[in-house]
Design a protein around this nucleic acid. Structure first.
Lengths: 245, 245
DNA sequence: ATATGTATAAATGTATAACATATAGACAGG
DNA sequence: CCTGTCTATATGTTATACATTTATACATAT
């Protein structure tokens, strides 16, 4: 019946003002906001209030703050992947998500990605996948075990990027980053890494030959293996909550 | 070679402390943080610094702040869909994500969901879907157009919930909520709503008969129709920047 | 009795002024 | 060319005071 009369807090109104200036192109990426003291004068508020507004804009990934001369608050292009990833990753850590759900979601999304690859992948994409495989092989020959593990995880990121869809990319990247972090806490022997590598190699082959279903199948087994290891390790603990940054 | 020795800003360290306390269950949803003044004493910093930390926790959806006696900062369960939605919507506004990508992601995820329904859905699940359809039918008979539109959107939420996977549920819910919001700004005639309803009805039938592929196909057309309307509408404007909350 | 007013205390919201620290740039000296 | 030093300008932090919001208790009036 009546509208809500209550005003937002002052610093929130300032956030809105600045956001609005960006949305209407009065402020563009690269531009610098006036110093805190000037903003305070402009808006007729105290520096404290301005700073609370800046904290919010900063966390939202809208501005970047540098100290010192020539420093200040600069409008930046939002790094969507980073922000979305943090959103997801916070939620995963604090929420009621289980390793099983994580694995499930990963499997399903990667299956979709494989289907998309069947439609969209170019020669260049396959090249990127092969390069990753070759890097891993080289690292193996050189005995650089740690870096090879990283390359193994990277393979899955390259895979999802072929979809060219930021939402899928970010979601899956978050899941993988989280799993990667959890795996860091588990002693992995050479054999595990080698198995993962072989699976990746096989998957690339199947993708190039167009046998998507078989590729999904191999990937499923590959992911489930990881799931078993993680579950064994973390079930003993307090669910996912031991997973700190 | 060397590690970065630079300390984070003080308020950031406080954020980390509090986040950590939550992740290790020292603070649980519903708990209240000490008043700002006490926190300042505990951490040995000023109240302003504490407040900057609280701003961040608040924006992150980790605490809720109430003024007045018995007020304070309360730990809350994160409302992932809400947060994710805001994240997505921000990126949409700033042009990092397109409506097309949103539609694509929605189509793929809903296709996954349909596959999962083939494996997991119980009689009760189909019951929920049918109930939604019946509610929509009733609202149609009663001429309550607006509420029928809501029920149409709700149908898709019910659908994804059958997956029982929070990651899929939250991601898709965010996408759908965002689209729903955008559609509010477009004049929808009776026919559009009726078409959506018919599609839903057909999809339920196909799901129950186990024809998943056909169900995906119908859903694809249904979603693409929406995409076309949204694109036509928003391309004419100042890109997506009119999409305000 | 029930509704309305009023006082109180506890918490957040905002303002002001000062000092601490970080950083780019200019400039001098080896 | 490298190194140190100075300086101006910005953010980071502290301290204190006052304003506003809100739950609660209690008094008052109808």
């Amino acid at each position: 019946m009546f509208n809500n009369i209550k005003q937002k807090r002052v610093f929130e109104q300032i956030v809105d003002e600045i956001k609005n200036a960006i949305e209407t192109d009065k402020l563009k990426p690269g531009d610098k906001l006036p110093p805190e003291m000037e903003l305070a004068k402009i808006f007729g508020v105290s520096r404290v209030t301005v700073r609370e507004a800046l904290r919010i804009l900063e966390l939202s990934g809208i501005i970047l703050i540098r100290q010192g001369t020539k420093g200040g608050a600069f409008i930046i292009k939002m790094d969507a992947p980073q922000k979305l990833k943090e959103c997801l990753s916070d939620h995963l850590k604090l929420g009621n998500i289980t390793i099983g759900q994580l694995t499930e979601a990963r499997f399903w999304i990667e299956s979709i990605v494989i289907d998309i690859i069947g439609q969209k992948a170019t020669k260049k994409d396959f090249g990127l996948l092969r390069e990753s495989i070759q890097r891993a092989e080289k690292l193996f020959r050189e005995g650089k075990e740690g870096e090879k593990i990283d390359e193994n995880w990277n393979f899955h990121i390259i895979l999802v990027k072929i979809s060219r869809n930021l939402i899928l990319i970010d979601t899956l990247t978050s899941i993988i980053e989280l799993m990667r972090y959890m795996m860091l806490k588990i002693k992995t022997d050479r054999k595990i890494t080698e198995n993962a590598f072989k699976a990746h190699k096989e998957i690339v082959g199947l993708l190039e030959s167009g046998d998507l279903e078989k590729a999904k199948e191999v990937n499923k087994i590959h992911i489930q293996d990881l799931n078993n290891r993680l579950t064994k390790k973390y079930l003993k603990r307090n669910s996912l909550k031991d997973v700190n940054k």
